[in-house]
Simulated scan of single mutants.
Amino acid sequence: MTLYHGNSRDLDEWRSAEVLVSDVPYGIDYRSNSRRVTLARSIEGDKDTVARDTAIKLFRESHQLGTEAPALIFGTWRIPRPEGTRQVLVWDTKGALGMGAMDLPWKPAHQEIYVLGKGFVGHRSSDVITAAPVQSMGKNGRVHPHQKPVALMEALIEKCPPGVIADPFAGSGSTLIAARNLGRKIIGVELEERYCEVIANRLGQGAFNFAALVEED
């Protein structure tokens, strides 16, 4: 596996992968008010869908497959879905996902994952994937405001088409760890150096190629 430090818009390496799997900034402009200790309140590029749509566009252009290029992209019902979405998967967080609108008698307990393109494999199962989220605060081990559980990413990657996986918004590195656990090759890109260090630490002694690139202005 390889991890690049830089802006995915400026790097070509990840675009050669066969599958795109990423928790992209999708325009929710998330700002955490919880007591997260050392965690950042938000991430870069989350004010609109430009980062999400650009990544999908670059990936599709690289393979000349248009909307048939296989991808799994995280999102929310509050933001328009990516063009070419074929199915919506639901991540059931076992009742844990923040407070939501306090004037409503329901609290959010799921996130959406969009299936784009073709070539996915494996036995047919429910479109609801249940996985406990990572603890919400830094003192409990969380390292990124949008950190996804490795078990969830493994469940997604298990049904991806063969070939190299790309995650151009690697964040805490859960996608890379899940790919490693499943014996899949993966190329990751992360904009912030501190998260590149987090990923390297999480991967530990596993086979890992850290390609540190200078971030372009």
Rank of each mutant, 00 (worst) to 15 (best):
G122T: 12
S125I: 07
Q135N: 13
C160D: 02
L72F: 07
A71Q: 11
D53P: 09
A170K: 01
R41N: 08
V88Y: 02
L72H: 04
S34T: 15
R194L: 03
R81W: 12
A166I: 06
R78C: 05
R78M: 12
E158N: 09
R78Y: 04
G75C: 05
V189H: 00
S125E: 14
K57R: 15
A131L: 01
D23R: 07
Q205S: 13
P105L: 12
P108F: 13
L39Y: 09
G188M: 00
H110R: 10
A200N: 07
A71F: 14
I129M: 10
P149G: 06
S126Y: 12
R52P: 00
A178R: 09
I113A: 10
G206W: 04
A178M: 06
L58Q: 14
A40L: 05
F59C: 05
D48G: 06
G117H: 08
Q87D: 11
A212P: 01
F120C: 12
R9A: 12
W77P: 00
E193W: 06
R180D: 07
L89K: 09
T85N: 10
E158H: 06
L116P: 10
A200D: 05
D48C: 11
V19S: 06
A212N: 03
N181L: 09
K47T: 15
L97M: 15
H5Q: 14
K159D: 02
D127V: 09
K185T: 01
A40W: 00
C160T: 15
I199C: 00
R41K: 15
V115C: 14
M137S: 13
N201P: 00
L72C: 05
K118V: 11
N7F: 09
A132I: 01
V121Q: 13
S174K: 03
I129L: 15
H146Y: 06
T130W: 07
I56V: 15
G171W: 08
R35E: 11
S125T: 15
M153E: 06
A151G: 02
P105E: 10
A55R: 03
R81G: 04
F74H: 07
K159F: 01
I43P: 00
G119Q: 11
L11R: 04
A71T: 08
V134N: 08
A101H: 11
T49D: 14
G171P: 02
T93W: 05
V143I: 08
R41Y: 03
R15A: 08
F120Y: 15
I56P: 05
N181A: 02
E154Y: 02
G66T: 12
R31M: 05
I28S: 12
L116K: 13
G95Q: 03
F208H: 03
F59Q: 03
E112C: 13
I186E: 00
D10S: 12
A200P: 00
S16G: 06
S172I: 10
